[in-house]
Computed example of a mutant assay.
Amino acid sequence: MKLNESRQNLLNRVKSRLVQIAFDNVKKSNPLIETNIGKFSLQLPFDHQLPFIIKRSPYYSTNLARIARKVNEKYVDLKFIDIGANVGDSVALLRSEATFPVLCIEGDDYFFSILERNASRFSDVYLAKNYVGEITTEVNAVSVELGGTAHLLQNAANESKISIKKISTILNDYPLFKTSKMLKVDTDGFDNKIIRGSADFLENAKPVIFFEYDPYFLSQQNDDGISIFSTLVGLGYNKLLIYENDGEFLLSADTDNRMLLEDITYFYTGRKGLRYCDICAFHKEDNDIFENVRLDEIKFFSQVRSSKK
């Protein structure tokens, strides 16, 4: 009996080791795999963290799509700009709720190549291979990819010249999107710089802005974070919806509520990118959308919680 148990234990260890070796080999080759995002199937690199994030947080980024649907109800000719489009997962989520033209902007060579594959599954999706910044310039940097995301790293070995453009410069090649009523920015710490550099576009188009707010990544770009709200106030944005990074609605706020926004910034400081918030900013001309979205989000998550009881 003991001998059989010993053999079985040895067999189990051998099987486990072989599975681990096979997994490591697949991970090293990093093939593209089909993954369900919203109502669609996309190709993602094997090491992309998005499937694990969605499994852990099923409402991750779905808020973006619900908000876009409400914006589309008011602006039936909605055009959407996605800065930091990665592999096109936001497009899949958006198209799960409504159909409108989307401009995907992604600067990283690797992720852009996958974005091209995924975007071909949809109509009215336009692609721009660019890095977006506060000014149009060139920097010495290298793109660093990790776990399904990429960011520019300066002062690294093997740097090369990388072109960075303001959104208004990019839109000269995509005039259809010059009056876009919704803008998403997700760029691992460059978000505030991009918003500041987009002031001319924001002043003219007044889009609803959905952006990542992570004090950790912002600090790596020498950005204080909090000053972005003064910029938004100056551009006529007066209402905010704030979400946890898992997609759950947290609270609403006035853009000029400095004390509350300082508290939010303090709360997410020191989290090393593991916990942050997403913020949706509304121009005063769209206070009606803000009110509708706020009430719908409260209702949506109330139903989610009720279904778990």
Rank of each mutant, 00 (worst) to 15 (best):
V91N: 03
I279G: 02
D109T: 00
N9C: 08
N130E: 10
L153W: 06
R13T: 12
T35N: 02
Y60A: 01
F190N: 02
N12H: 07
S180Y: 08
E5V: 13
I289K: 06
S160R: 09
T231S: 00
L3P: 03
F23M: 08
K178R: 11
K193V: 00
I83G: 02
A156Y: 09
F177W: 03
S198G: 09
M1Y: 12
Q49W: 10
A156L: 05
S96I: 03
V139E: 00
N238L: 09
D24M: 09
Q303W: 01
L261E: 14
V304M: 07
D214Q: 12
S230K: 10
F46T: 00
E73C: 04
Q49M: 10
L218P: 15
M182A: 13
I226C: 05
E285H: 09
F40Q: 06
T231R: 02
A92C: 06
S113A: 13
K309I: 14
V76Y: 11
E5A: 10
D24L: 12
K272F: 14
N72M: 05
R17G: 08
C277A: 11
L94P: 01
D109L: 02
A157R: 00
R13W: 08
K161W: 06
I279C: 03
G38P: 14
R17M: 13
P215H: 09
V142H: 00
L171P: 08
N4Q: 13
Y266I: 03
G107P: 05
L241I: 15
F52E: 10
K161Q: 09
L152G: 12
L274Q: 14
I37P: 07
F111N: 08
F80G: 04
A150P: 00
D47N: 11
Y126L: 00
F282Y: 10
K55H: 15
N86G: 00
R305P: 01
S41V: 14
R121C: 04
L235T: 11
F111H: 13
I298F: 10
G84V: 02
D109Y: 02
A65C: 04
G147H: 01
S61C: 13
A253C: 15
E116G: 03
A128T: 03
S41G: 09
T149K: 08
V233M: 09
F300E: 12
N130Y: 11
L103Y: 00
K55E: 15
S61K: 14
N192H: 07
L50T: 07
A281F: 13
A22Y: 10
K2W: 10
D223H: 11
T137L: 04
V142N: 01
V91G: 04
E134G: 06
